[in-house]
Design a protein around this nucleic acid. Sequence first.
DNA 1: GTCTATAAATCGATAGAC
DNA 2: GTCTATCGATTTATAGAC
Lengths: 195, 195
Amino acid sequence: MARTSGSHSEITGPRILDAALRMFAQHGYAAVSMRKIAGEVGLQVGALYNYTPDKQSLLFGLMRDHMENLVIAWKAQEPAEQPLERLQQFARFHIEYHHIRRDAVFIAYMELRNLSPENFAVIEDHRRAYEDELRKILEEGHKQGVFDVPDPKIASMALIATLTGVNTWFRETGRLSLEEVLDIYSDMVRKAVLA
Amino acid sequence: MARTSGSHSEITGPRILDAALRMFAQHGYAAVSMRKIAGEVGLQVGALYNYTPDKQSLLFGLMRDHMENLVIAWKAQEPAEQPLERLQQFARFHIEYHHIRRDAVFIAYMELRNLSPENFAVIEDHRRAYEDELRKILEEGHKQGVFDVPDPKIASMALIATLTGVNTWFRETGRLSLEEVLDIYSDMVRKAVLA
DNA sequence: GTCTATAAATCGATAGAC
DNA sequence: GTCTATCGATTTATAGAC
């Protein structure tokens, strides 16, 4: 079912989001103009405003979708029963999920300062909800005596920083495979909280 | 010894650097115009170019100075003798130093993509030199059998990510003092690598 | 839905007076 | 060393033709 040449709305929207995500991650929100995004998709700048009311909404939509999907994807995991296994499951999930979506991860952290206060609060709520998932694991393990975590809130933020850090240096073409990295980090995370 | 009103070069330079550091950290390099920096210092935009050839050099100078000073400050520490004590010393130094200079830390990480390839290489060399300092500690501890660190390079990057993460959430006015945070992180880092 | 054209503001950087 | 004035390019966003 061929369409007229001026009508591609069904695929244009996602292509704009893809281009914006990639370009924001690479050059930064402020450094990427609406014209450059349009050019990457093969449009003139005016056409972008059929898909977003303004540049700010484009950024916020990308960040919000990423954070929402992150929490949803974690909750969709079949939960391991024991705290230690559950922690290992979280470490693996976090590294793999963030590796695949490194552009979105980068933006969701780097561009927080370009959000309005209201939008910032929304993103921070999602982030807190995700951190709470790890905190609950640590608290349960501490209660059972298998972990030694006197401050689960701090520990959850520390461990997430550790795991997210993989994105800053890991490359598919590097010395180690992602599977090997997963093993090393799982070990470190386990030892860091074990009683 | 009063000076004429149009001559403040001795203090204007540092004030420009201070303003640029603070504003780049808060809004991002691309979002801060030379006019805004000048305004913050109380100058017109043209006067800035008596202190920097262009905006790019202003950014690079801030990042280079920060990374150079970081490595120098660490090497100026009186080294603890045992690997475990040396590791604890590194953790404490890293958290304290990065806490005090959080604007510079933020910029040195966030604005890497706004550097020319040559300037980027310079900054990365400093970063690698600093990571090597931690790696050497881990290798020595592993050799002595007090640490269990099969991959010191990976472990050093993981631990640095953990420690730097404090900057993303710690506030002086929060629930914990910096001293308490130092204790918690020292413990986690120690356990993570201990044999 | 996409285009062209345009508005109004801002950008980095320079020239020349003082 | 700082100022004013300015150049030429670029910005976000909108209006209206098709």
